[in-house]
Amino acid sequence: MATPTRTRTRAGARRGRSRVPVVGIVIAAVVALAVVALAVTLLTGDDQAAETVEVADVDVEGEALPQLPGDGSDPAIGSPVPSLHGVSPVGGPVSIEPGDEPLLIVVGAHWCPHCQAELPRVVEWLDQGGAEGVEVVGLSTAADESAPNWPPSAWWEREGWDRPVLVDSADQTAAQALGVSGYPFFVLVDADGRVAGRWAGEIGTEPLDAAIAALDS
């Protein structure tokens, strides 16, 4: 025979029905929250980016680099880096191509939490004189309007990135040409236009410092 664990003497428990319209209150609360959400959204509106370009075609000159393997090796070391031609978020022409000085390409995806963590570190490093004598450019890739932290141009700007940014295409033409295997991604090109190093992920700035120092030696 079952023994009630507790003695219930209250009227509601005895009757098994409530005196308060609980279901009605719940439904009213849910509807009220829906109305509030709709009203707030209508009143505040979606933040639309100013006239910026977040995805654009990229022209590639030269042979694409092989994708960076995850085993620590890099078959692209010493290979000539392809030239990339496209536009910046404000629509002006931007090219990533070897010049007279070494080149560091910083590849980031706006929705990627590791990129969101790494970009401020890179900016701080650059502000403190990192990559001295090296041309630094950004590549905004994998842009997805349905993903968080949209638009990418606002993110780069918000993080204090004051170097040129090339906008990648919808099918990530530029990233594929550089052999990007994950985000964030870095490509260091020596003054002869050949790949000196590639890194994927949050690497901090020490490997970049070391690799740039090795270029000088």
């Binding site: 995806a109 929705w111 990627c112 939490p113 590791h114 990129c115 963590a117 994998a142 993903a147 968080p148 295997s181 994950g182 985000y183 964030p184 994927a200 992920g201 949050e202 690497i203």
Partner: peptide
């Protein structure tokens, strides 16, 4: 979400890591 390194990788896999905050 808060500490993406807990995924065991410091790289964003383009195939959707769990650290992405689709909504905030």
């Amino acid at each position: 979400e808060r500490f993406p390194a807990l995924e065991g990788s410091a790289v964003c896999d383009p195939a959707n890591p769990c650290s992405i905050r689709w909504v905030q």
